[in-house]
Design a protein around this nucleic acid. Structure first.
Lengths: 224, 224
DNA sequence: CCGGTCAGACTGGTCTGACCAGTGGTATGG
DNA sequence: CCATACCACTGGTCAGACCAGTCTGACCGG
């Protein structure tokens, strides 16, 4: 293999390892070339390739900027004053979670079923004991688990980063003693659909659950 | 713009014009460099970029072969996203972005229309000039702008955090000069739907675009 | 003490000229 | 007629030079 290609691969590996991180600069070309035991011309060819692929960006007089290399670690979405509105949160969840539920139903495993059932029983126990904090936790765990069972890391990742605002919007509905069992029933519908491998039912069940959950905190969500 | 990038563009134009055809060799590097008025080092950087994009293949002792442009698997320089597979990325985008487009169509403003049109014209200019890097940037900008115009900060935030893998999946399809205009046409459809306030058309247009974009990088996405 | 200025040490960008290692055509000798 | 040696190509790589921006820090005047 050509020297520039080898260098390009080596650099990609370092980008992947996090050895060089997005936003940082690579070492100077002269220094880097010497460190890797190649001429600057070859190093430059390697950098040109990486630039054509959009991994780095060369800036005259400044350096070679690492533009990417991995999914940016997005900070958790804040639940404080700058939080997204409950409206926006539900709007977003009503897009994401029904799809995740449908995906989960497509390739559910025995292990996945067990996890869902376990969460469901935890939720029901909490409700029986009037333990609203534990119930809210189980509710959140359910949504995270569905995202995880989608089999797509991105759903899980985004759901995790949303857990703060989700948790916030979860606590309120449980305050209403009249409806605390509705959540469990709706979860049950989704869990059944997923464990029985019925994507469309899972999608609709989750959509319905989110719509109702929004209603329980006083939000009327338009159909999307 | 850098000399190697200019040269790379000029060569791409000649490739598209049929000035150099698949299966043929480019003129010798020394001859070509002199003909284009640059040093061989710069010419070589340009060729490295084209090779990273899969347009040509350098063969020591023989010459620089013009490839068909249809070859998808670049094993030499794996350009694959690092964290999420292309499959997962498109799966996720096909959930998120059609919804964002529909939302954007619901409350589009004159400013929003202007932004979308501007991005569209930037993309078309880039394609006319064979500036694939600029085209990929405009493509990314389009998707980010649609997420922003959804009016829901969460869509925008998540789209931004995905820009790295999205950017990856954008760059390669542009290497295929047979299909570069398809992207612009599909964007046009979505832009029209959004600016005319037609949510359902916007959703379908975006879904169609993503499905085609996936196909252009060799992925067949099941309907979700 | 503060603020502007200028020199110098960086950065990447480009070019030149050289040499190496394969490839392929061609002329030469058997 | 064929095999071989040669040579003119090809791309691959390197070292070194110079240019043009950018940033930093020392310096000087207010």
């Amino acid at each position: 293999m050509n020297v520039p290609q080898q260098i390009a691969q080596a650099l990609q590996r370092k980008l992947q390892d996090g050895h060089y991180r997005a936003g940082e600069n690579l070492p100077g070309q002269r220094e880097l070339a010497e460190a890797m035991g190649v001429s600057r011309a070859s190093l430059r060819e390697a950098i040109s390739m990486l630039e054509a692929l959009g991994l780095v960006k060369s800036q005259p007089g400044k350096g070679v900027l690492v533009t990417t290399g991995q999914v940016r670690q997005h900070k958790d979405i804040p639940a404080g004053p700058f939080a997204a509105s409950p409206q926006a949160t539900f709007e977003f969840r009503m897009v994401l979670e029904p799809a995740a539920a449908a995906l989960a139903a497509r390739h559910i495993t025995p292990e996945g079923k067990a996890l869902l059932w376990q969460i469901q029983s935890t939720l029901e126990d909490a409700l029986k004991n009037q333990d609203l904090v534990a119930a809210a936790e189980a509710d959140l765990a359910f949504h995270l688990q569905v995202a995880r069972l989608s089999g797509n890391a991105l759903f899980h990742q985004v759901a995790r980063s949303l857990s703060a605002p989700i948790g916030h919007s979860l606590r309120l509905p449980f305050a209403d003693h009249l409806h605390i069992w509705e959540t469990a029933h709706e979860h049950q519908v989704v869990t059944d659909a997923i464990t029985q491998g019925k994507p469309e039912e899972a999608r609709l069940g989750m959509l319905n659950h989110l719509r109702n959950a929004a209603a329980r905190v006083g939000l009327q969500m338009d159909s999307l």
